[in-house]
Amino acid sequence: MMKRLSGLIAAPHTAFRADGSLALDMIPLQARLLAHNGVSGAFICGTTGEGSSLTGEERRQVVEAWVAARPAGLAVIVHVGHLSIGDACAYAAHAQAAGADAVAALAPSFFRPPGLGELVSWCARIAAAAPKLPFYYYHMPAMTGVSFPAADFLQAANAVIPNLAGVKFTHENLMDFGRSMEVADSKFTMLFGRDEILLSGLVLGAPGAVGSTYNFAAPLYLRIIEAFKRGDIAAARRDQLKAMDFIEVLGRHGGLSAGKTAMKLIGIDCGPVRLPLRVVSAAEEKSLREGFERIGFFDYCSKLP
């Protein structure tokens, strides 16, 4: 039986040097930070990890470095999606051979599957390349343009993909999330993927969540989870609003680029982003820091061990 993922799963940034090369030496520090702050997993080479901007060799190097650096109890989930199904299968096979704990894949976003059957077949091929690992479908319509309901995908894929474990659900359709939780007698693990509305996912039964801001604000989100578990919804809402506040600041200063700057501000410099993303300027970094200070971000952000 496949082990179910749960708790906070961070989507780490891929660290680069000033010249754009990989800074693999940052991965042990990133991994220690996550474990120290109560994060249960690392979802690597995905959106936040700029996986689509990495070469194939770089993706393999990042996977191997994370597997080697992970502390006990920190699961490594590898995003293996690619526009080429052959490359996606090769990444999945490599992740299994390297010792990862699970794989996940976005839907293809240039030649998109015309129907649900084609999406299931696409995922089945990739999952079969790593048959010993749980496979998660990465549902992110805003980026892929593939918007078949996750609940329908799970119903269609249940009998087709033996190692299908669930969905990384990065979408705002809470009805679809709730319906997905009930497919096949709640067989599948639904990992909630919108940090700014984590509390909504918890209300609908999410056992875990994957997000970029868990890299640098895990203590705040763990407070939300604990408050929800003890029935203190007012406290959970207050802390969720704090998360909304700093996510709004991040959005005004570049989104993913600003997230890397946030890592720098807590002591882990993950370097620049790659083109076509825009690097945060010195002035923008100063404004981001000031915005964080105004809302008290540094009172609850992750701390270095």
Results as ranks from 00 to 15, higher is better:
M140V: 12
L174C: 04
G117H: 14
V160D: 06
E118C: 01
V146R: 04
A95F: 10
P134T: 07
S109F: 14
E118T: 10
A107L: 08
S109G: 03
L154R: 06
S121G: 09
A127E: 00
P162I: 06
Q155A: 14
F110H: 14
K132F: 12
A151Q: 05
I126F: 10
P134K: 04
S109P: 00
G99I: 09
L164A: 11
W122P: 08
H139R: 02
Q96G: 14
A128W: 02
Q96S: 11
K132R: 15
F153G: 04
D152I: 07
V120L: 06
A97E: 15
G115N: 14
A102T: 03
A157W: 04
F148H: 09
A105V: 00
A150I: 04
L116N: 02
G166P: 13
D152G: 06
D152Q: 13
P134W: 07
F148A: 08
P149M: 01
P149D: 02
L106S: 07
A128S: 15
I161D: 05
S147E: 01
V160W: 04
A165V: 07
W122H: 14
K132Q: 15
E118G: 02
A97G: 12
P108Q: 11
Y138N: 07
Y137L: 09
G115Q: 07
R125Y: 03
P131I: 09
S109E: 06
L164I: 11
A100S: 13
M143S: 05
A128E: 11
Y137P: 01
P114Q: 11
N163W: 08
G145R: 12
A130D: 02
Q155M: 05
E172G: 10
A107N: 12
R112M: 03
E118W: 00
Y136I: 05
L164C: 13
A100G: 10
A128L: 09
Q155D: 13
F153K: 02
L154E: 08
H171N: 15
L106D: 02
F110I: 15
T144M: 03
P131T: 07
N173V: 12
C123F: 10
R112K: 15
V103S: 05
A129T: 04
L106G: 09
P141I: 09
P141H: 04
A105H: 05
R125A: 14
H171C: 15
K132M: 15
L154Y: 03
H139P: 03
A105F: 04
G115W: 00
A129D: 06
A157L: 09
P141R: 12
G99D: 12
A127S: 07
K132C: 15
A156D: 08
A150T: 05
G166I: 03
E118N: 06
E118Q: 12
F135D: 11
G166H: 10
V167W: 01
T144S: 15
F111P: 00
A165D: 14
P162N: 11
Y136F: 14
I161L: 04
Y137V: 01
A95W: 07
K132P: 08
V103K: 05
L133D: 01
T144K: 10
Y136P: 08
N158S: 14
G166S: 13
A105Q: 07
A150F: 02
N173F: 09
A100Q: 11
A156W: 05
A93Q: 12
A104Q: 10
F111W: 04
M143D: 05
